[in-house]
């Protein structure tokens, strides 16, 4: 049995849900990462250690295991929880760890003399961050940031296993109903490809534009 047009429609809806899940966790993950990154540069050793531990644990375990852990643990503490909530929480934690490392790399790319220059000019700390370091870090980190965004779209597919209905679960359902494996997976691949490739291209274009203006790392 071949897949029908209505199956195609269902899949595009599922794809938009995948994108929505990814975007929501990108937004929340970025916010959390902005809180985490300063910890990596905190004067207290314990804060830096906690940061490193968080990154190691979140990056060292598979997203699927994190998802199962959080899904079951939240269910145990708060009773039944929607897989969507659990899914967004998992993706947020995962992306926060990746984003925080991206931002940390960006801050490390700022040469020390620049900090000293700002200080010798008498700029207050907040202005240094807002007017000098912030914009530079944003430029440095944009390409890897968008790279992680691509990973967010792909990681959302893992949530299908904790019964979040998105593109991968929808595809699997249609495959199990129609056995039209190749066509369904081809459509799913095209939909994922469009979402990821768009982000990737956007990243390349921005990278080229920012480099042309003299913001490539080595030129500073």
């Amino acid at each position: 049995m071949a897949m029908t047009l209505s199956d195609l429609w269902v899949m595009t809806q599922a794809a938009s849900l995948s994108l929505l899940l990814a975007l929501a966790s990108i937004a929340l993950g970025t916010a959390l990462a902005l809180l985490l990154t300063p910890l990596a540069f905190a004067p207290w050793a314990i804060a830096r250690m906690l940061y490193r531990l968080f990154i190691f644990v979140v990056r060292g375990t598979p997203v699927l295991l994190l998802a199962l852990l959080i899904f079951y643990a939240l269910a145990a503490f708060w009773g039944r929880i929607s897989p969507y909530t659990a899914g967004v929480i998992v993706l947020t934690l995962y992306l926060a760890a990746l984003f925080a490392e991206v931002f940390r790399g960006g801050v490390l790319a700022i040469p020390r003399p620049l900090w000293d220059c700002c200080k010798s000019l008498g700029l207050p700390r907040l202005s240094i961050l807002r007017r000098v370091v912030g914009p530079l870090v944003a430029r440095y980190t944009l390409p890897p940031y968008l790279n992680v965004c691509v990973m967010a779209v792909k990681a959302s597919s893992v949530l299908s296993i904790i019964s979040v209905w998105e593109l991968t679960l929808a595809s699997r359902e249609i495959i199990e109903r129609t056995l039209d494996v190749y066509r369904v997976l081809a459509v799913a691949a095209i939909l994922y490809f469009l979402m990821c490739f768009a982000i990737d291209r956007l990243g390349r274009r921005l990278e080229i534009r920012l480099a042309a203006r003299g913001f490539a790392g080595e030129r500073l």
Partner: peptide, 21 residues
Amino acid sequence: QVLRNTPVLLPIYLIYFGFPL
């Protein structure tokens, strides 16, 4: 490009569900 921009679950399903056909 195709494999980098699609989740790993797709090739997994492709082979697991597709090859028996």
